[in-house]
Amino acid sequence: MDLQLLAPFLTATLLLLVTPGPVVAIVVHNTLRKGMTAGLLTALGVELGEVLVLGAVFTGLILSQEFMPLLFRWISLAGIAYLIWLAIRAFRSRKASSHETNIKSTSRPIIDGLTIASSNPATLIFYTAFFPQFVSPHHPLLQQLVMLGAIFLGASLVFDMICIAAAARLRPSPSFGRPGFDRLAELGSAALYLCIAAFALLGLANVPV
């Protein structure tokens, strides 16, 4: 893997993880309601869901490069356009419509995490747009995707553990889910999407057609 792409990927991953979303919400919710064990089981479910989604995304990307190399380039371009659209939508949003504030849980926390992580089609589309921006055409695609996926899953698990540890010591905060906080999260997401898109455009400009 190209080490020059690793640092931007780590930065983007960190920013994605700290942006409030349904995964963080369900992990914190179950921890606050049912304790640390429930939070850990929820995080395990999230990891399983992420593995399923990433497996589907990576399979599609590898097949597209194997059988239609030009298609992979177009997937990258479509991904850039999608990220820009997400940024525009976030900037224009008047309320946090993309994040569920009313979290519903079941009696099985691991099912909660698995469902939240794998049932949203937008997640599949986003990962398809996100990961190709950090692969190099000069290295084997499978090796790069496996490494990026492992890093992403590891970072996600560590962040979930931090959230669980913090939530286990805190009561629900009245500021959680306030419009101002959600609006700030939307603006942060928009800036992140634009940065990733700009980085990807620069990278594609240096790749020979």
Rank of each mutant, 00 (worst) to 15 (best):
V24M: 14
S136E: 07
P121V: 10
L202F: 02
G49I: 06
S105A: 05
F134T: 01
A122S: 13
P8G: 04
A166L: 14
F176R: 07
H139F: 15
L71N: 01
P20D: 07
L32P: 01
L16D: 09
I116H: 00
S173N: 15
L63G: 02
Y127V: 03
V18T: 10
F131K: 01
S105N: 01
S98I: 11
G45A: 09
I116E: 00
P174N: 10
R171W: 08
T31L: 08
S93H: 08
F152A: 14
T123W: 06
G79E: 02
L141S: 08
A117E: 09
I125L: 12
V207G: 01
F199G: 10
T11P: 01
M68C: 03
A12V: 09
I164V: 15
F159R: 01
T13F: 04
L48R: 05
A150V: 14
E66Y: 05
P8Q: 06
I196A: 12
C195T: 14
D182F: 04
A155F: 14
N102K: 12
T59Q: 09
F199T: 05
E50P: 02
G35M: 09
F58D: 00
T37K: 15
I116Y: 04
P69G: 10
L40I: 13
Q143Y: 11
T42K: 03
F159Y: 13
M36T: 15
S93F: 06
L153E: 04
V46W: 08
T128V: 05
R183G: 11
A166W: 13
E186N: 13
A129N: 02
A25V: 03
F176Y: 03
F91W: 15
L142D: 14
R73H: 02
F159K: 01
H29P: 03
A198F: 07
I75K: 00
P121D: 14
L153M: 13
L124E: 05
A197V: 03
G149K: 10
L201G: 05
F152S: 14
E100I: 12
L61W: 00
Y82R: 01
C195F: 15
L5F: 11
M161L: 14
Q4N: 13
P20Q: 08
A122V: 12
V18S: 03
R183M: 13
L201K: 02
M1H: 10
S175I: 12
G188H: 04
I164E: 09
S175P: 00
L204V: 03
F159P: 00
P22R: 08
A25E: 04
L40H: 07
S136D: 14
A150S: 15
L6E: 07
S76M: 11
L141T: 08
A78F: 00
L114N: 06
P132M: 04
G188V: 02
V28Q: 01
S97D: 14
A191K: 03
F159W: 11
T19P: 00
A205V: 07
I103H: 10
P109Q: 07
L153Q: 06
C163G: 01
G188F: 08
A117G: 12
G203M: 02
W85C: 06
H139V: 12
G113A: 11
